[in-house]
Amino acid sequence: MSFNKKRPAQPSRTHPTRNLTDLKRGESGILDRLDLPEEDARRLMEMGFLPGHSVTPAHSAPGGDPRVFQVDGSEVALRRETAIRLILR
């Protein structure tokens, strides 16, 4: 995996940030932001991944990647490398 794009500076927090991959199956979390290039972020937002929305991991392909996430009434499959950039509150 290669992430050429620089991560935006992280705001200092007492807790380390959590992302979608930290959620157990069936456990939901509230989305805070999408650390992705504009293009991908827009597409994901159109599919329901908007800050403030609740996201719940569900089934996955064999091996756990990609995984289906329930968000805003639909189910969308994402690769781990994408899910890891979706930061939770």
Partner: peptide, 9 residues
Amino acid sequence: ARSSFMLEM
């Protein structure tokens, strides 16, 4: 580069 995969089920 590796492309992303986003697919609605």
